[in-house]
């Protein structure tokens, strides 16, 4: 089977690669908007990220608006 045929979306056969990408976007996006408390930036700036909470504050209003527990 050629690569192009393998990557073609048919209604009965959804490509796993596309589903994996979208599932990753779903998980990562949900975490950023709904649950990050400094975890992501702590990978770059360390413990300070848990005090600064930049992503938490950036997504603060959306968290409340979309129904996620915020604080």
């Amino acid at each position: 089977m050629s690569q192009s045929k393998h990557m073609t979306v048919l209604d009965s056969k959804v490509p796993v690669s596309a589903v994996v990408i979208l599932a990753a976007v779903f998980g990562f996006g949900l975490f950023v908007v709904g649950y990050d408390q400094g975890h992501l930036l702590s990978l770059v700036i360390g413990e300070q990220a848990f005090k600064d909470l930049y992503i938490h504050e950036l997504t603060h209003d959306m968290r409340h608006a979309a129904g996620f527990p915020c604080h």
Binding site: G27, G29, E57
Partner: peptide, 14 residues
């Protein structure tokens, strides 16, 4: 300011 950006990320995820 984050409302619109977070809305975009929420939209990508959902």
């Amino acid at each position: 300011g984050g409302m619109v950006l977070a809305g975009g990320i929420f939209g990508l995820a959902t």
